[in-house]
Design a protein around this nucleic acid. Sequence first.
DNA 1: CGGGATCCGTTACGATACTG
DNA 2: CAGTATCGTAACGGATCCCG
Lengths: 221, 221
Amino acid sequence: MPGHRSYALLCPIARALDHVGDRWSLLILRDLHAGPARYSDLMAGLPGIAANLLSARLVDLTASGMVEKDGAGRGARYRLTDLGRATRPILFELSRFGARLPAPAEPVEPGNRRHVAVTLAAAAERVAPADLSVRAEIVLDGQPFSFVASRGRVSMEEGAMLAPPLRYTGRYDLLGPVVAGTVSFADHLDRDATLESLDGTDAAPFAALLAEALDVIGGRR
Amino acid sequence: MPGHRSYALLCPIARALDHVGDRWSLLILRDLHAGPARYSDLMAGLPGIAANLLSARLVDLTASGMVEKDGAGRGARYRLTDLGRATRPILFELSRFGARLPAPAEPVEPGNRRHVAVTLAAAAERVAPADLSVRAEIVLDGQPFSFVASRGRVSMEEGAMLAPPLRYTGRYDLLGPVVAGTVSFADHLDRDATLESLDGTDAAPFAALLAEALDVIGGRR
DNA sequence: CGGGATCCGTTACGATACTG
DNA sequence: CAGTATCGTAACGGATCCCG
């Protein structure tokens, strides 16, 4: 709510946009869905944002009760509250819609891969069987995430996993054709990525879950 | 894409926001989900928007392929394309999130009730059995909508229905407590609204669908 | 050096007035 | 009725500076 430029309508959509509709707000939330982050982590994931804007948005989101600040000074971290986590379906649907749109001519490279976490976790949760339990590390362009599915819930947070049973290693840009449906996930695993079992666990259920999640993102399920 | 201030990122969320993230864009789409509308209809549903902004947004949304213009001059109408209709899940999730937030102190009254259509239709579709067929007129604050559920799909468009089998008549503001869960839908029908069968059709399935849809909006399902 | 705050030129927004 | 034109104001974006 910067400068109190509010829609002030009865409609819940307008109310939501009063809190998350400002420029950068949803992208900041997107990054925070990958776990707590420092100011500079967020800067790295949001190419083009001005420092004052990031500050202002973090203040706004905190005032709205969606973000909390842990600590102060050098090691301060921002994390989502429960209300902030409730934005996941919004981000997920934005992601599905965005997948239908043509890619921009000159994409800027973000400095990290945090942005994939929301989309992939939410998509996987749409198709995860309630009786499936998976722990796996996902490494994208060298950046590790810990992926956990359990009782129909899926989370994906930035950071290496302790003793992961499974590990997917690949490049973010090579997932694009899989999402678009022009390359099958099986072919992707053959040619462009690796999926290893580190303790003998069967990798097939995890692979199937990823394949279905990418179908969801691509709008094929 | 006003002034081409684009996020230009690889992330599909950023790509989506490049097309629908500008101020007013999602609220314009929201109104158009209730059916084609003239310029002045949209102005009435968007209190506070400036005329030049509405013009500019309609141009942007048309350029993005989400909106089409029918006719020219006095009777021109704007309508959603298939791509524009694909924004419904985004609006629906925004609506569910907005329902969790405190209502603004001084809500401005919009000049029409078009904004309810997306939310109610999307919510009803979440719970509509595939074998349920319902045609009903919904009149909110005197404004009629035609509500149709069939084969698991639900639509709700502004405008009176031809020979409706059922008719719900009520006030928008009195639905708030039902969404919030403080008043049951049954009590709402008893005290605050009317539900009539105009040709002997059983109103119960329609009532049950509405009740469940309001639960969905309120986050209880 | 990370985590911001300050300053300033540019861009978008919002209100009103005006035109076909 | 359906917009366009104008203009003051507010927000954004980049750079620089400050503070621990």
